[in-house]
Structure formats: structure tokens, C-alpha cells
Computed example of a mutant assay.
Amino acid sequence: MTVHNEQDWPGGLDVKQVRVARPTDRLTEVVRFYRDGLGLAELFSFQGHAGYDGVMLGLPGRSYHLEFTQHVDGSPCPAPTKDNLLVFYTPAVDAMMLMVHRLTAMGHPPVEAENPYWEENGAVTIEDPDGWRVVLVPSAGI
């Protein structure tokens, strides 16, 4: 097994930024969940681009972004499975619980994880406004 320095990309994969994008019919609510609830920074937004509005969220100073778009005509936005996950590793339980409390106060309480691994390791699973699941993991638990 080859172990790479986590600062290095694999050979032949010369990438400087990673963005995960998905559509939503609830752009305002989804942005509020990830920005105000989780605390991700709003990096950029646009309106009216070929019928799309969108917002990019990410970790400040990092090259990892989430992009949410909404089309003026709507989108089918198929429901995710309970095991489609976006996982955030937090530095400590206190940091994780701060996010859990904020999201719960916003109407997004924890839900039971599909895979028991997460709860066995102290993680908390929460659904965003579209039903996509976010797992918050205290790094000490893994």
C-alpha cells in the first residue's frame, strides 16, 4: 500500500481546488443550514446565470467548496438515501456539539444514522433541508 503525504495529490492528478455541487429547490434554506448552522463561509454567490442562482460555501483558506444551485424552472432533486453523507471531522466534542445545538435550534435535530459505525464512534447525524445527511464526528472518536 502506498501512503501519500496528505499535502500531495497523487501523480497525474494536478488539481488545485475541489468543489462538490448539487441542485436544490430550497437554496435559501440550504445555504442557511450550511452557513449559519454548520458555520461554513459563504465564498461567492451568483444570480440569473443562464437561469441559475448559486452559492459556494467552504472552509476559509481551503480549496474545498460546496456549491448549491437552483434553476428558475426548478429541479427534480431526487431524494438521497440515508447513507449519502457529507462528513465533517471536528477537533473536539465541544466543537461538534456547538454545531449540533445551532442546527437543532434551527429545526434540524439529530437523526439516527443508517450505519451504526457513526454513533458507535460518537458522531451525530443531521439532515439538511433537502434530506441530505451531514455527519459531525469528533476527531477524538475516530
Rank of each mutant, 00 (worst) to 15 (best):
E42A: 13
P109G: 08
L57M: 10
L66I: 07
S139N: 05
F44K: 10
G54H: 08
M96V: 03
I142K: 09
R62K: 13
R133F: 12
G11E: 15
D73Y: 10
M96C: 04
T2C: 10
T28R: 12
D8V: 05
W132L: 15
E112W: 01
I142R: 07
P80E: 13
F68T: 02
F44I: 03
W118G: 00
M56I: 05
T104V: 02
P109N: 08
R102L: 04
V55W: 05
L38N: 02
P129Q: 10
H49E: 14
V3Y: 02
L38M: 14
R35K: 14
G141S: 13
E114R: 11
N84K: 08
E42K: 13
G39Q: 05
D73F: 14
A105G: 09
G122T: 03
L38A: 05
S45W: 04
P78G: 15
D130Q: 09
L59C: 03
A105H: 02
L27E: 11
L85V: 04
L13C: 09
M56S: 09
P109W: 02
R102P: 01
T125S: 05
G74N: 11
N115A: 06
S45F: 08
S45D: 13
H4Y: 09
D8M: 08
P76R: 13
E114K: 13
H71D: 09
K16L: 10
N115V: 06
R102F: 07
A79M: 09
P129Y: 05
P10S: 11
A140P: 00
M96P: 00
G141F: 08
D14Y: 12
S63K: 05
D128Q: 07
G107H: 10
G54V: 13
P78E: 14
R133A: 14
S75K: 08
T125I: 00
E29R: 13
L86I: 04
A123Y: 02
V30Y: 07
V31F: 02
E67Q: 09
G48I: 05
F44T: 04
T2N: 11
G39V: 09
V30I: 12
E127G: 04
S45M: 08
T2D: 08
R102G: 04
L57T: 03
P109H: 02
M97F: 13
A41K: 13
D14R: 07
R62S: 06
A105C: 01
H71R: 06
Y117K: 08
V135F: 01
P78R: 15
S75G: 12
P23Y: 15
D73C: 12
V31A: 12
P116G: 07
M97P: 00
L13I: 14
H4A: 12
A21P: 00
E112A: 11
H49P: 00
C77M: 12
L40T: 04
W118D: 05
F68M: 07
L43T: 02
P76E: 14
P60F: 06
T28G: 11
